[in-house]
Amino acid sequence: MNRTMITATNTLAQLQKQMDIVSNNVANIDTNGFKRREANFTDLLFQQFNNGPGAPGAGDAGRLTPNGIRQGTGAKLAISKIVMAQGNLKTTDRPLDMALTAEGQVFRVLEQNDNGSAIRYTRDGAFYLTPISQNETMLVTGNGYPVLDENNNPITINAQASNFALSETGRLTVDVPGGGTASYDLGISYVNKPQFLEQKGGNLLGLPENMADLGVEAEEILTELNGPLRNQIGIAQGVLEQSNVDLSKEMTELINLQRSYQFQSRSISMADQMMGLVNGIR
């Protein structure tokens, strides 16, 4: 296999990864609070061939091109970066539908599975009540994950509660039997470094498992908006945030990907034809 084939093969594998990212964006265009990802590429190692005569600079008077030849080995996907731009808001007038109106803020929820439990993050504010006993219900996401308060505890609400009201600082207030009220401060965080967040499935984001290897602490990636920081929260009731996926942009990206894929495939075909001609020389 010659260098042309190696370069094209390396690039084809990375283009496939970018195509997977774009396809995932398109598939989630109708997912509440979904944040698109975009791929950034970087060059792989290249080899420098100095083919100029004599010492560097000798006989190069008036030269307009660099001396030597640089032959690369393709490109690779450097980073898949999440884009935290605000999505459009859709009015539902449902009391338990909540949308974060400040860019970079996320709800904290508790994901529970066979491997244990872990705090996850989401922009999807379509919440529901699920009964946990005869007198209590729990605030959960559409997938049944408990929504956490500012102390990272699940929010439990009286089963007979009514008149759900949400303040600008993310405090949920309800009327309870007996004429009283109860209030709950929703757990909300601000994402400082979104490039470190990983998609965990179910429209959830999470911290990477190898933070020690990355040399970063959880506090550097996320800031919990508790206490005085709750004044920074932007939230609205009775609305849902749509995904920030622009279908026309994603389709344009797919067309560009298709052309790049065809170009690299054509490079392999041309290299194979050239090798056939060389091998056919007698």
Rank of each mutant, 00 (worst) to 15 (best):
residue 1 M to K: 08
residue 3 R to N: 14
residue 4 T to F: 04
residue 6 I to Y: 15
residue 6 I to N: 04
residue 6 I to S: 02
residue 6 I to P: 01
residue 8 A to K: 04
residue 9 T to I: 08
residue 10 N to T: 01
residue 16 Q to D: 12
residue 16 Q to I: 07
residue 17 K to A: 11
residue 17 K to T: 13
residue 18 Q to P: 10
residue 19 M to V: 04
residue 19 M to H: 01
residue 22 V to S: 01
residue 25 N to S: 12
residue 28 N to W: 09
residue 28 N to M: 07
residue 28 N to H: 10
residue 29 I to H: 03
residue 37 R to M: 08
residue 38 E to A: 10
residue 39 A to N: 06
residue 44 L to P: 00
residue 45 L to S: 11
residue 48 Q to I: 09
residue 48 Q to G: 04
residue 48 Q to F: 08
residue 49 F to G: 02
residue 49 F to M: 12
residue 56 P to T: 10
residue 60 D to G: 11
residue 63 R to D: 02
residue 64 L to V: 14
residue 65 T to E: 06
residue 66 P to W: 00
residue 69 I to T: 14
residue 71 Q to R: 11
residue 71 Q to G: 08
residue 72 G to I: 04
residue 74 G to F: 00
residue 76 K to W: 05
residue 77 L to R: 09
residue 79 I to A: 15
residue 82 I to E: 01
residue 83 V to Y: 05
residue 83 V to G: 01
residue 84 M to Q: 15
residue 85 A to I: 02
residue 93 D to K: 13
residue 101 T to P: 06
residue 106 V to E: 06
residue 112 Q to P: 00
residue 113 N to V: 09
residue 113 N to A: 11
residue 113 N to F: 05
residue 116 G to T: 10
residue 116 G to R: 07
residue 117 S to L: 02
residue 119 I to F: 02
residue 119 I to M: 08
residue 120 R to E: 02
residue 120 R to K: 15
residue 122 T to Q: 03
residue 124 D to E: 12
residue 125 G to V: 10
residue 126 A to G: 05
residue 128 Y to A: 05
residue 129 L to S: 05
residue 130 T to Q: 13
residue 130 T to H: 07
residue 132 I to L: 03
residue 133 S to G: 11
residue 136 E to L: 13
residue 136 E to M: 13
residue 138 M to E: 15
residue 141 T to P: 07
residue 142 G to P: 00
residue 144 G to K: 09
residue 148 L to S: 08
residue 152 N to F: 04
residue 153 N to F: 06
residue 154 P to S: 11
residue 155 I to M: 03
residue 158 N to D: 15
residue 160 Q to D: 13
residue 163 N to S: 12
residue 163 N to L: 03
residue 163 N to V: 04
residue 167 S to V: 10
residue 167 S to T: 15
residue 170 G to F: 01
residue 172 L to V: 11
residue 172 L to Y: 07
residue 173 T to V: 10
residue 175 D to H: 02
residue 176 V to I: 15
residue 178 G to V: 04
residue 178 G to H: 02
residue 178 G to D: 02
residue 178 G to C: 04
residue 178 G to P: 03
residue 183 S to V: 01
residue 185 D to G: 07
residue 196 F to M: 14
residue 197 L to I: 04
residue 198 E to N: 13
residue 200 K to V: 06
residue 200 K to G: 00
residue 201 G to A: 06
residue 201 G to N: 03
residue 204 L to W: 03
residue 204 L to N: 06
residue 207 L to H: 09
residue 208 P to Q: 05
residue 208 P to V: 04
residue 208 P to S: 05
residue 211 M to C: 05
residue 211 M to L: 14
residue 216 V to H: 05
residue 220 E to G: 15
residue 223 T to S: 13
residue 224 E to G: 06
residue 224 E to K: 15
residue 225 L to F: 04
residue 225 L to I: 06
residue 225 L to K: 08
residue 227 G to W: 10
residue 230 R to G: 14
residue 231 N to C: 00
residue 234 G to S: 09
residue 240 L to N: 01
residue 240 L to A: 06
residue 244 N to C: 11
residue 245 V to F: 07
residue 247 L to G: 05
residue 247 L to R: 03
residue 254 L to R: 02
residue 254 L to M: 15
residue 255 I to P: 08
residue 255 I to M: 15
residue 256 N to C: 01
residue 258 Q to K: 13
residue 262 Q to V: 09
residue 264 Q to W: 04
residue 266 R to W: 07
residue 266 R to E: 12
residue 270 M to Q: 08
residue 275 M to L: 15
residue 282 R to D: 07
residue 282 R to P: 03
